[in-house]
Design a protein around this nucleic acid. Structure first.
Lengths: 334, 334
DNA sequence: ATGAAAGCGCTAACAG
DNA sequence: CTGTTAGCGCTTTCAT
């Protein structure tokens, strides 16, 4: 059987309290007893039982991460950052793939609660009132990564999407483009949909470019929707010289559709993506993108959560974004 | 404070044992008490403490998953399958990104042990003797997904790589190719390197094709290495008509290099990938691949682990693979 | 510096 | 049907 603190106490004739002290580096024992205890621990192959520790009131050092899909490129990058940070701080992370299912989310929340986790990170989820209520009742610390809730009840870390989309559009404008289309993500998505369209529209306006209705189409962030949207665009608005896609996948879909229609990128049409997932550098030609710092978002998000767990007060954080120039945007000024 | 079983017992004047009984659907209480208990539970917002339950000896219903990188396309697909299955069986999964670091792996193993997890899944890791020894000492159930250990000590689920590589090569041969190159993965990788080369070579042999040394180059599964290897191949073995890459990423790297060298795929050169990650369908032209059932591997791997936890005996499992024809391989017979 | 004992929340005999 | 009680492994006063 697994040796317990009792076993090692008995073996060397001290009390369990003493053993506990040395295990936890508390003060109150002589160097000799320490040596004896350590030796016995080693010999018996003892290791503490985290459940028992957790029961007594100490933290279990585990957090839960809720995300719509663990296998999406974006989510897995963020997860990777979370995981790295957690490892550095000696926390474990339980993943919860909500699959955008309300029932599943609520169920996960219940399980996490039962397992006494110390905090939760919500990644890229659209937070419904139902979730918010359940989470509030849980009395755990929460950090939102790459998302936000209406009431700003929860601490978040993300990129400023309006600004990022604005600058992406501005970048195209600076390259001489005047007839710029946008392939937006899901129409009513308050996090990654609406704000990006807003930024796009604002830039057009500020630069005195006309906002044509036929230049704005809506996909759902996926590759296939990018393909479809591009085809649509080519048909209803053939004069565009550049298209801004609200995700890398849609941008790649656009590339694919352009190829099929024998339109050369970037010679005849410029394309810019959004996210900078691993995919972006693998396309031919490599995709110019607005890059979001996903890994960092995860890493810092976890750090913020730990701070909150420790009782420190934590501010919301907006991370900087940059444009990574590759080969899908043509400067038509020259 | 969080209500406990005691609180609800006190509130309605029954013993904690009774409350425990109804919570666990044991027999031994009247319908009326049940109703009262349920009502109190609801009113007080009670939920069980999994740590306490785990302490008493019951399972904690949590497993650990070790993988070299959570953000790789392959790993995240497998993880997705594991997670889905775990959710269906009411288990939680703790992810451990080993980053191919021995120290990190050992550390994770220690933490998992302390947290009393019920089992672990090792994904795509090369198992060193050190890991094997540590895991054996832990006395937990183990399943290997998409990997294998030398001694076959552990239950595994994977694809037959030799056979798959053989058939991939055979597929190319059947399409009329005679001068077939291979971009292998890491040279000494016993799981995804050596076996695939073996299958490739065997097919050439069986079909009486010459095994030219300059037709076989070694990358490391990455996109960049695929690019480099393709360039090398084009230089040292310009007469090849097809190349088999041991990963999608390398295949896409090959596509990219071909494009840069103005070689038309598949007109002048056929390329076939291995894995069928999401990437494969997004390239232009879409990549023909040997498809591994990653999601299923994860899903069934988890199921096997649960069976083992329950004490059932479980057989190793070889999953079927298929070739998915897209547009990067030309039939040069006609 | 060390030990005894209470108790974290729960389950599982054992007794009624 | 229901209650009492003894732990699970550990931490934490409170004594000594």
């Amino acid at each position: 059987m697994k040796p317990t603190i009792k076993d090692i106490a008995k073996k060397i004739g001290v009390s369990v309290a003493t053993v506990s002290r040395v295990i936890n580096n508390r003060s109150g024992y002589s160097p000799e007893t320490e040596k004896k205890v350590l030796k016995a621990i080693n010999k018996l192959g003892y290791y503490p039982n985290a459940l028992a520790r957790g029961l007594v009131g100490k933290k279990i050092k585990t957090i839960g991460v809720l995300m719509p899909s663990v296998s999406s490129m974006v989510a897995s990058k963020i997860l990777s950052g979370i995981e790295d940070a957690a490892h550095n701080k000696n926390y474990s992370v339980i993943i919860c793939n909500t699959d955008n299912s309300g029932k599943r989310t609520i169920n996960y929340l219940r399980v996490l609660r039962e397992k006494q986790i110390d905090g939760i990170i919500v990644v890229s989820e659209i937070l419904t009132d139902e979730y918010i209520n359940v989470i509030k009742k849980m009395e755990v610390q929460v950090v939102l990564v790459s998302t936000i809730d209406k009431g700003n009840n929860f601490t978040y870390i993300k990129v400023d999407d309006i600004k990022a989309a604005y600058q992406t559009t501005e970048y195209l404008i600076n390259k001489g483009h005047k007839n710029i289309a946008m392939i937006s993500g899901t129409k009513n998505d308050v996090v990654a949909g609406i704000p990006r369209v807003k930024g796009y529209l604002k830039a057009l306006e500020d630069y005195g470019l006309s906002k044509k209705k036929e230049n704005l189409v809506y996909g759902d962030f996926s590759f296939d929707s990018g393909k479809i949207c591009m085809a649509k665009l080519l048909k209803q608005s053939p004069k565009i010289s550049a298209v801004f896609a609200a995700s890398d996948e849609m941008a790649i879909g656009a590339l694919s559709a352009a190829y099929r229609h024998r339109i050369n990128v970037p010679e005849q049409l410029s394309v810019i993506g959004y996210d900078n997932t691993t995919l972006a550098q693998m396309t031919t030609p490599p995709l110019t993108v607005l890059s979001q710092p996903f890994y960092q978002m995860g890493y810092e998000g976890l750090s913020m959560l730990i701070s909150k767990i420790k009782g420190e007060s934590v501010e919301n954080k907006i991370l900087p974004h940059i444009i990574i120039e590759r080969q899908t945007v043509k400067d038509i000024n020259r």
